[in-house]
């Protein structure tokens, strides 16, 4: 705990006061851990969860666009509070690490052990490199504008290359039933999802198939633009919620 006070009046605590402050820090750490696992995970799962749950949803057109777009929201809001008030450059990494912990626990115990989905079918994506980059840009620039433009863009652009080593193998072509499909598609056909008819997957729509693999960088740059705007929006949402007002009545 060290508030953003003027260096002129701030003196480091010693003795019992230092121990009190350190104990408070630990309490806040535990609180923040569960808060952001619970809240960020719910926000993420109910807005772009499907792309993260299932390997066959991890396409080139939507997944690299929507996941960073929602993934940058909580990091921006938490950075606004932790950096502005405490000079802690870890808001994004904290949120994304919490999200990773929450998703991994659920994929293993709720999907794999309860309902027997293969763990490879429900591997979560990672945004850790993106989050580290975002925190580093904020720390070095100390600027909302610079972080929104360069950090936000980098957050989106790093997403696909960070995940490609994990998921590339599931995009290998295979032949089944006289059709060419990917290994990821095969998972979808083999493990029937009772609530999700195949035709309802929101992946790779459109007619211009000659774009080929260029669809991915196009989606990533589109996401970079949106992330720039989303970052600034959520920075202000974070500040708005972190009000210190007391009301007379509610």
């Amino acid at each position: 705990m060290s508030a953003n006070r003027s260096p002129r009046v701030f003196l480091a605590y010693t003795g019992e006061k230092a121990r009190i402050v350190r104990a408070y820090d630990y309490l806040i750490l535990v609180l923040a851990l569960f808060l952001f696992i619970g809240s960020f995970h719910l926000h993420f799962a109910l807005t772009v969860g499907d792309w993260d749950f299932w390997v066959d949803w991890k396409d080139r057109q939507w997944w690299p666009l929507v996941t960073p777009l929602i993934g940058i929201t909580f990091p921006a809001a938490v950075q606004a509070v932790l950096w502005t008030n405490f000079r802690l450059p870890l808001g994004a990494t904290l949120c994304v690490a919490c999200l990773s912990i929450g998703t991994w626990i659920t994929r293993i115990f709720a999907y794999h052990y309860w309902n027997y989905f293969p763990i490879n079918m429900v591997l979560p994506s990672t945004m850790m490199p993106s989050a580290l980059f975002l925190d580093a840009i904020l720390m070095m620039s100390n600027s909302l504008t610079v972080t929104a433009i360069f950090g936000g863009s980098g957050f989106a652009l790093l997403f696909f290359p960070s995940n490609w080593p994990i998921f590339a193998m599931f995009h290998l072509p295979i032949e089944a039933g006289n059709s060419q499909l990917t290994l990821a598609d095969m998972f979808g056909f083999q493990y029937i999802r009772t609530g999700m008819p195949e035709y309802l997957r929101i992946i790779e729509r459109g007619t211009l198939r000659t774009y080929g693999q260029v669809a991915t960088p196009l989606a990533a740059f589109c996401s970079a633009l949106f992330c720039t705007l989303m970052y600034a929006l959520w920075w202000h949402i974070g500040l708005w919620f972190a009000t210190t007002r007391y009301l007379k009545k509610i």
Binding site: G38, H41, L42, A45, F53, G102, I105, F109, A110
Partner: peptide, 11 residues
């Protein structure tokens, strides 16, 4: 909030 918003929600 963790159990309600994370584990059992995605489950």
């Amino acid at each position: 909030v963790y159990w309600a918003g994370s584990y059992f929600a995605e489950q």
